[in-house]
Structures are given as C-alpha cells and as structure tokens.
Amino acid sequence: MGETMKRLPIADPIRTSEILHHYHLQAKKSLGQNFLTNPAVINSIVTTAEIAPGDQVIEVGPGIGALTEQILAQGAKLLAYEIDGKLIEVLTNELPADAQIKILHQDVLQTDFNKDFEGYFDPTKPVKVVANLPYYITTPIIFRFLESGIPLESLTVMMQKEVADRIEAQPGKKDFGPLSIAVQLDMESHIALNVPPSSFTPAPKVDSAVVQIVRKAQPIRLPNKDLFNKIVKVSFAQRRKTIYNNLKHLVGQELQTIDDLHELLRAAAIAENRRAEQLSIADYLKLTELVDAK
C-alpha cells in the first residue's frame, strides 16, 4: 500500500477507504460493524481514558485498528478481542510491528479473562477498557465486565446514545433500570462526548456517545449480590406493573406467602403502587437485606 496512506492515521477516511478496498472488506451488519473515521473523536476517547505508558488496556471489537493504533501510541499494553477472523490479518499487518498487543479471535462474552491474562497482564494491576463497542451487544458487554471480577478501573466506551442515557438515568426517570443500577452500584459515570453518525463508515442510523465509567473509591457492599440482582430483575420484569405485582413472583421462592410480600414492602417503607423505576438503589438494597434476613 502507498507510502502516503501509511503516514495517515487508520481513522482518516482516506486510509480507512484504502484498507477496506485492499482487503476487500465491507462492514458486517450482523456484527454491528461501523468503522470510526473521525480522528478527533478517537483522540477524545484516548484523552478521556487517561491512558499512560504501561497501562493494561482491553479493547473489544478493534475492527481495522483506528482506535487501537492510538491506544498503542500512548504506550499501553493492549489485549484486543476481535470476533471477525478477517480483521485479524488487517490488525496484524496495519499496526506497528513492535506494538504491545495480544489479539484474540474470541467472543468477549464467552472468554475466560484469567486464562487470557495469563503470562501477559499482571493480575494485581488495574485494567482499563477502551472501545467502540458493537451496538447490538453493548449492554451484555458492560454487564460482563462489571461482573467479571477483574481489577477493572474504568471503561471508556462508545455506545448508542440511548444506552448511554440508560446508564446515566436516575430514579424516577423512564430510562432508569437494571443497567443504571448495575453501573451505579460500583461506578461513577458521565457522558464525555456526543458523536454524530457522520463520524462512522457506514453511518449508523442512531446518535452515539462516549461514556466514561470509573470505579468508585467506596463501592456499595453487597452481602448477597445474587439475591440483589434477582430482586432487581423481577422488579423490572414488566415495567408497567407496580412493584407489588412484579415482586409477587418471589412468593413461593424467597417469600413464603403473599402476606410476607405485604410485610416486606411495609418494612422497606415502599408503597405497593410504585413502579420499579421510582425506587432508588437504597430501596433495592433494603429489600435485599430484608429478604435475606428471612
């Protein structure tokens, strides 16, 4: 490929176009591929992530390496998960030969992080996730990292604006739900940047946002996380129903009788006609504590 193109960052539309042409590539809708072709946005992601030399960084869906190239330029040690086998060759050829990168042709939702880290990442040091996430599985990926048990310091990730709003949502807002709660338990989050469809090739039909999610200095302690997650899931099972009607599904499982449910809500000082999104995280913690004590 031409020397001119080599001098351009991968995110430059000219170089992206030449790479796609050279390798006979097209964005795969089935994998939610939209190549980021706005160097300014990529610089903002890298700056927001505060990547320092030697940082251990995970990238999901590196694509043709536009963001990857700039993460590596900061001196990070990178572990990249790419599910599209055709892109492994592109990444291997287009990224610097001396780059500190381990590329895995694996699904991040199915992989074993401990095994992937072995001999590469120091398991005692924190990990940052920096990625332009595939939009169709953004939520499962975020849950995967939050529940992974790895020493996660932060996630700086591009996602659909609608999902970003759900992460940020507070109790009482229609977007508040299980994702909001899962993130806000352990992490602080903010939308760092709104990104228009024109920043991608092909342009998606939705607006995007870069969200930074950082671990709290003092995460909320959960003595019974499985029970907490179950109560949250049941509470939001049918959003239009009241909390009482949704929690009836616990009767015969965590609760013995319907009277126990009335007593539970009374003890938690939660009105039976409230809906799941109107409850605070503290309310869900109280419900968990009361059920766990039965």
Rank of each mutant, 00 (worst) to 15 (best):
R266F: 10
A11Y: 04
A293G: 06
L78I: 12
G75R: 09
E18S: 13
I270T: 05
N132F: 12
S148W: 05
L193I: 06
S154E: 15
Q100E: 13
L152S: 12
F117D: 04
F113C: 03
H24Q: 15
K216I: 03
K161W: 05
Q100M: 12
P134S: 12
L36N: 04
I45A: 00
A40I: 13
P196L: 00
R15G: 10
V60G: 00
T156Y: 10
K294T: 15
D116L: 08
L255F: 07
G85I: 15
I150S: 03
L264M: 00
L133D: 07
G32T: 13
T201N: 09
E18D: 13
R166H: 08
T111N: 01
L8N: 10
D165V: 01
P126A: 10
G177I: 01
V157R: 10
N132T: 12
D84Q: 11
P140S: 14
Q170R: 13
E168D: 10
Q100D: 15
A49I: 11
L287R: 01
S235R: 01
L87R: 01
P151L: 11
I10K: 11
I88T: 12
P204C: 08
Q106A: 15
I10H: 12
Y135M: 06
P140W: 14
G149E: 08
T242F: 06
L25F: 10
Q106T: 13
E277K: 04
E18V: 11
P197W: 00
S199M: 01
I10Y: 11
Y81G: 05
Y135V: 09
D207A: 11
I10E: 11
P202I: 12
M158N: 04
Q160H: 07
P123G: 05
F236K: 07
I19Q: 06
D107A: 07
V183P: 01
Y284G: 01
I142G: 11
K174H: 06
P53A: 14
R221D: 13
E254R: 03
M5P: 05
S280W: 10
V127P: 09
L20A: 10
L25D: 08
T257M: 03
E94D: 04
L20F: 15
L264K: 06
N114A: 13
I167H: 07
Q170L: 14
F145T: 06
I14K: 14
L8D: 09
L95K: 03
R275T: 04
K248H: 03
L109F: 04
I181G: 05
Q238A: 09
G75H: 11
L285G: 00
M159H: 06
A237F: 09
P196F: 02
F113L: 09
R266Y: 08
K28L: 14
L8W: 10
V129A: 09
I101Y: 08
T156W: 09
I64L: 10
Y284W: 00
P13I: 02
G252D: 13
A276Y: 00
K286P: 02
K294N: 14
L255S: 03
K248L: 15
G65E: 07
G54C: 13
Q33P: 14
K173L: 04
K241R: 13
P62T: 02
I150D: 08
G61W: 02
Q212R: 14
I71T: 08
A52F: 14
F35G: 12
F200I: 01
K294F: 12
L67K: 03
K125S: 09
D12K: 04
P140V: 15
V251F: 07
T4H: 14
